[in-house]
Amino acid sequence: MLYFDHCASTPPYDEVIQTMTEVMRAHYANPSSLHRAGTSAGHLIERSRAVLAEQFRTKKGSWLFTGGGTESNNLAVKGIAKQYAGRGKHLITTRIEHASVYETFGQLEEEGFRVTYLPVSDTGHVRAEQVLEAVTDETVLVSVMHVNNEIGTVQPIAEIGRMLKKRSRAFFHVDAVQSIGKLPVSVEEWGIDLLSGSAHKLRGPKGVGFLYIRDGITLYPLFTGGSQEEGFRAGTQNVPGIVASAKALRMASESMEARGRKLGALKRMLLTEIAEIPELKLNGGEPSAPHIVHFSYPGMKPEVIVHMLEEQGILASTKSACSSKDQKPSRVLLAMGASREHAAGGVRISLGDEHTERDIARLAEALRIAVRQLKPLERGLT
């Protein structure tokens, strides 16, 4: 099988699996315990925290470990909104955020917060000026993702961050789950106050996320019952997962430039192949991440295409894994102005380290075969 679903999850590095196994075997004590074994486990967490600070060039004490990217996003958004509601109850985000951000803002609306959802262009980009135009004296949080998890568009995070710091007291949160390890992320230089990441998107283990919090910021905790993670995230830490995640981040960061060049070349090859299949319509535009290609077959259910590709030994997806079972048209494509028919037929291809030009050629041929077989059935499968 050829695995083209790296946005959903990535195969862990062999070294990460080995690290996690070794830590599970040798450091099983609770890191909050006062005895030597607990202290040793706690030291591993702090060393892992230092790895994040080193890789992102931030202060050591600014990183929390969570149970995944979804939790990191929820903690950032709800934590800021509820902690600083006294300053104001206006929040800003975009219409194309990941569900863990988008639906969190929906919950906050139900609790009395006012949310501005910024539109995007037909290529899936938001303008920094739009953010500033939406800011009011009561705005406490702006949340904009770095790389869209569905179509791969890259938002102008640096420009937004710098403009916000000059003209607003609002905190700036960035969901960087799909960009870490693929694109440079300059947390402090870009004026980011909170940044979310997830280990299993960069060849680490599932069940571990991380959240950068700029010094001086306090969050309203989602979980209570312990003083772990500076009191912002109660619960016994996942020591093996945290250590393995730090290992994965270091390895992904060290190979990021080479990965970007390789995946960028493969992506350009795939875009050329898809452009030559008239039934398929490419979605998104530049700037975009090097590992994501998204297209639609208007009038065709995307799960039909995905299953036909699987029959040919290729694994792809329709949209984000968190929403893949949702039969509704893509919220992201609708926000870009696509018709419901176009938005309902999207397929995502996400590339990884193991892919080669030969794999891209095989994928392109599989797409041609699928389209030839589906063309006569278009109306019956809509």
Results as ranks from 00 to 15, higher is better:
I92G: 01
G42L: 05
G68V: 11
S40A: 15
I92M: 06
V131R: 06
H125C: 01
H43K: 12
G61F: 09
P31S: 04
T58N: 11
I96M: 08
V51S: 07
F113W: 01
G42K: 01
A50I: 12
D122T: 06
A29S: 15
S121D: 14
F105N: 06
G88W: 14
F113Y: 05
F56D: 02
T123R: 07
E111V: 05
S33W: 09
K59N: 04
S32I: 09
E54Q: 15
E22P: 00
G79M: 01
A26K: 13
G42E: 03
R49D: 09
V16E: 02
V77W: 08
R114M: 04
A85N: 05
R36K: 14
L108R: 10
R114W: 05
V126R: 12
R49G: 10
A85T: 02
E46F: 07
G68W: 13
L118T: 01
R49K: 15
L132Q: 10
R87A: 12
W63F: 15
V16A: 02
Q18D: 07
P119N: 08
E15A: 12
L75C: 05
V126M: 11
W63K: 02
K89T: 12
T123F: 00
E46I: 11
H90I: 00
R57I: 09
D14Q: 15
T104W: 00
R25K: 14
T93P: 02
I45T: 00
Y84Q: 06
M24P: 01
T70C: 13
T66P: 08
R87T: 07
H27L: 11
Q130I: 02
G88M: 12
G61L: 04
R95Y: 07
F113Q: 00
H125I: 02
R127T: 09
W63I: 02
V51C: 08
P31H: 01
G88F: 08
T58E: 05
Q130G: 14
T123M: 01
E129G: 10
M24W: 03
T123H: 00
V115A: 03
L34P: 08
G42N: 02
D122E: 11
A37I: 08
R49N: 10
K60A: 07
D122P: 04
R47G: 11
F105C: 02
V23H: 07
T94W: 02
E129C: 07
P119I: 11
W63C: 01
K89W: 06
L64G: 03
V23Q: 10
S40N: 11
V120M: 08
A81C: 03
T39H: 13
V131C: 08
I92V: 13
R57G: 05
L132R: 06
S72N: 13
S121W: 05
Q55A: 09
E97A: 15
H125L: 13
F105G: 06
R49S: 07
A76C: 07
G112S: 14
S121V: 03
